[in-house]
Each structure stands twice: as structure tokens, then as C-alpha cells.
Design a protein around this nucleic acid. Structure first.
Length: 191
DNA sequence: CAGACGGCCAGTTTACATCA
DNA sequence: TTGATGTAAACTGGCCGTCT
């Protein structure tokens, strides 16, 4: 026996025996069950009844379990297992629905953001045009002597307003492949 | 307080049904 | 007929609350 396996067996022997008796009990029961029974699908009728019960209440009080088991000619354990699996399926379904809802919301936000970015670009262009117009008018009135503090916007780089590189990148979204962009955010694993 | 017990959960295995 | 795949039934181990 290697040093590692010796150590492992020592650790195992020192472990608290929590659940140990139960595991033995379960194995015994399993052998008994395995001797005669094969795994069988529940009948449509049984499943219908179980589904109705599940709609009434998601968890089983012990009396109810016995009642359902007797009604369907099943073992109480089978009824308990069915309810456990059914709760797990229900939870998965709920998670899936929540994910889809969030995904839709996110897609909407991305689209709205894109529209807003384009609107900002459009307004900036208008502002530049207005400034140019004012400059021309001013030139014709006082010979082009405009104060140096006049243009606060047009002297800034157009993409610098949001501070981060990512946001500057978004300002170019209309040149970007929008489909690829949204897919990248809404479906990162390409599922 | 310790230990037995039952219920629940998350994760896994197994048996079966379906389809290409 | 057969292998791949999906799914339901059953199992496992851990955790928790209750009872004795």
C-alpha cells in the first residue's frame, strides 16, 4: 500500500460516521428492490394524477404521500422521488424562463443604447453646423474677430465624451456590424 | 449532547424510448 | 438492427430539523 493510500485510509477511518448507517440501510434496500423490480415508466394515468397533486401543492406531507401512493398503487418512496424530480424540473424551467426574459430585456437595452448613441452623433453634427453658421455670421459682422472661448464642443474629439474606450467605440456603431455586436452581448457562447 | 431518522436538494447514474 | 441521444426514474451524499 502506498503512503498516499495509507494516509487516505487512515483519514477515512477517522471521519465521522455521519450518514453511514443510512447509506448501509439504503444499500440493503436497493439490493432487495433490485432483485425483483425493473425500472418502469409511470403510466399516463399515474403521471396525470401526480401532476394534479403537484399543482395543488409542491411538497408532500407524509399523509398525502401515503394517500397518493395508495391511490396509484405505487410505493411511497416512488411518489417522494417523483415529487423531488418534478420540483427539480420545475426549477430548471423557471430558471430557463428567467434567463430568456433577461436576455430579451438586455437586447432591448442594447438596441436603445445604439439609438441613443446615433442620436448623440446626429446632434453633434447639427451643433457643428450651427457653430459654423455662427462663425460665418460673426465674420461678416466684425471681420472674423471671435473670442477664443467660443467653441466648447467642436474642439473636443468626438468620441471622448463618454470617457471610456468602450463607449467611444460604441459611437461608431452605425459603421459597425450591429448584428454581430448584439449577438456578442446577448449570446456570448454562440448557443 | 449524541445518534437515529426522515425530508430536501444538487448532482449523478441507470433504464428506457425514440429517431436517423 | 443498431448506435446516439434525450428524458424520466432512481440513487447518492450532504445538510438540516426533530425526536428520543
Amino acid at each position: 500500500m502506498s503512503e498516499a493510500s495509507l494516509l487516505a485510509s487512515q483519514l477515512w477511518s477517522q471521519m465521522p460516521r455521519v450518514g453511514d448507517t443510512r447509506t448501509r440501510r439504503r444499500r440493503l434496500r436497493r439490493r432487495k428492490v433490485k432483485g425483483d423490480a425493473k425500472k418502469r415508466r409511470l403510466s399516463d394515468e399515474q403521471v396525470r394524477f401526480l401532476e394534479m397533486s403537484f399543482r395543488d401543492e409542491r411538497k408532500l406531507a407524509s399523509g398525502r404521500k401515503a394517500h397518493i401512493a395508495a391511490e396509484l398503487g405505487l410505493d411511497g418512496k416512488q411518489v417522494a422521488v417523483w415529487f423531488q424530480n418534478r420540483r427539480a424540473r420545475h426549477k430548471n424551467k423557471q430558471l430557463e424562463e428567467a434567463y430568456l426574459k433577461l436576455k430579451l430585456e438586455h437586447e432591448g437595452v442594447v438596441v436603445e443604447k445604439c439609438h441613443l448613441e446615433n442620436e448623440v452623433l446626429r446632434l453633434k453634427e447639427k451643433l457643428l453646423e450651427a457653430e459654423e453658421e455662427i462663425r460665418k455670421l460673426s465674420w461678416s459682422v466684425n471681420g472674423g474677430n471671435l473670442g477664443s472661448s467660443f467653441s466648447a464642443v467642436s474642439q473636443q474629439p468626438i468620441h471622448g465624451e463618454f470617457g471610456t474606450e468602450a463607449e467611444a467605440e460604441l459611437a461608431y456603431l452605425d459603421e459597425y456590424d450591429f448584428y454581430n455586436y448584439t449577438m456578442e452581448w446577448t449570446n456570448p457562447y454562440g448557443i
